[in-house]
Simulated assay, not measured.
Amino acid sequence: MTQPSAGEPPVAPTSDRLLPLLKVATEVGSLAALLTALLYYFGWARSEAQARAFGADASVFDMSTADYLLRSIDALFIPVFLLLVASYLGIRVHRRLTGSHRVGSVREGGPEPVPSTPPRSAIRWARWLRLSWLIPVAIGIPLTMIVPVFGHITFPLWVAVGIVGTAYGATLHRVFQGRPLPSLTTVALVAALLAVTLFWTAERYATFVGGEMAVGIKAAPADELAPVAVYSVRRLNLSTDRVRETITPGPEPGYGYRYDGLFLLQRSGDKYFLLSDGWNDGLGRLIVLPDNDSIRLEFGG
C-alpha cells in the first residue's frame, strides 16, 4: 500500500468519501418516494370525490398511476409553494433562535469561532413551543365550528403544526440545557406522525377540490368540458332526454346514429366517459362508451 509522502495530507479511503454521497442519495430517494406516494394518493382522492359526485366510483375509470399523478399536479402548486415559503421562514427562525451566527472574527491560524450564547428570548420561545400540542385544540376545533369547510380541511394541518412545534421546542430546550438530542426512535415516531398528518391533509384537500370541480361541471358542463358528437354503428338507447339522437349518415359509412348534447369528462381504461347536461335538475347522466371501431367521436362545435 502506498504511503503518503511527508508534508502531504493523508487521503481518505474511497468508502469514506462515498458515504456522504450515499447518505444524500438515500435522503433524496426517500423524499422522492414520499412525494410520489403523496401525489398518487392526492390524485386518487380527488378522482374518487369527483366520481362519487357523478354517482360512480374511481375504480370505474380504471386510471393508471400516471393519470393519478398528473391529476394532482395542477391543484398542488399553491400548497407546495406555501410549504416551501414556510420551510424557508422556518430555517431563518431556527438560525435566529439557536444563535447559529458566530461571535468574534476568524483569523488564519487563530482559534475556532465560539458559538454565541442563545438569548433569553430563544429560551423562552423553546419553553412556549413545547406547548404547541394545544394548537389543534385552541385553533383547529374553533375553526371547525366557526368556518366548517375551512376548519375541516385545515384541522390535520393544525395537528401537524402542533407535532412539529412540540418536538422542535423540546429539542431546543435540550440543546440549550446541554442535554443529549432525542433518540432515533423518537425522531422516527415524530416523522411517522408527520407523514400521517400529511396524507390526512392531502385527503381532505383533494376531496374538497374534486367536489368543487364536480359542482362547477354540473352547473355548466359546456363551460368546463369539451362538447363532443358521438357517431355509432348501432343505436345506443341513451336514457336521458338531454341527448339528441339523429339518424343520419355519419362521416364514414356505417355510422348511422349521431348523438349530440354530450361532453367529454375523460378517457381512461380504453373507455370514453361522457356527461350530459341537466345535473342540477336530476337529469344528468354519466355515460361510458368503449373506445373501439363501433364508436366515433367528433369534438368541437
Rank of each mutant, 00 (worst) to 15 (best):
M1G: 15
M1F: 11
P4D: 06
S5L: 11
P10N: 07
V11S: 05
T14H: 05
R17Q: 08
K23H: 04
A33N: 01
A33R: 01
L35P: 04
A37H: 03
L39Y: 13
Y40M: 11
Y40W: 15
Y41E: 11
W44G: 02
W44Y: 15
S47H: 08
Q50N: 06
Q50E: 15
A51P: 00
S59M: 13
F61Y: 09
M63P: 00
S64C: 10
Y68S: 05
Y68W: 08
S72Q: 12
I73C: 09
D74V: 12
D74E: 12
I78F: 10
L83D: 05
A86I: 08
G90P: 04
I91Y: 11
I91D: 12
H94S: 15
H94V: 06
L97K: 00
R102K: 05
G104D: 13
G104C: 09
S105M: 07
V106S: 10
V106W: 13
R107A: 10
G109W: 12
P111I: 08
V114L: 10
V114Y: 05
P118M: 00
R127N: 09
R130L: 05
L134Q: 11
L134S: 12
I139K: 04
G140V: 09
I141C: 10
M145R: 14
M145F: 15
P148H: 11
V149L: 14
F150P: 04
P156L: 04
W158E: 01
W158N: 01
W158A: 01
A160R: 00
G162D: 06
G165M: 10
G169H: 02
R174W: 09
V175L: 14
Q177R: 13
G178A: 06
L181F: 08
T185A: 14
T186L: 11
A191G: 07
A191D: 12
A195Y: 07
A202R: 00
A202N: 05
Y205M: 04
T207Y: 04
T207S: 12
G211R: 00
M213Q: 11
A214C: 04
A219T: 07
P221Q: 02
P221K: 01
E224L: 10
E224H: 11
L225K: 06
A226R: 09
P227Y: 06
V228L: 01
V230E: 00
Y231C: 06
Y231T: 02
V233Q: 14
R235M: 09
S239I: 08
D241L: 13
T246Q: 15
T246V: 15
I247G: 10
P251T: 14
P251I: 13
E252W: 13
Y255P: 01
Y257N: 12
L262Q: 02
F263Q: 03
L265F: 07
G269L: 11
G269S: 13
G269C: 12
L274R: 00
D277I: 02
W279C: 04
W279F: 14
G282L: 10
G282W: 07
V288W: 02
L289V: 03
S294H: 13
R296D: 01
E298P: 02
E298H: 12
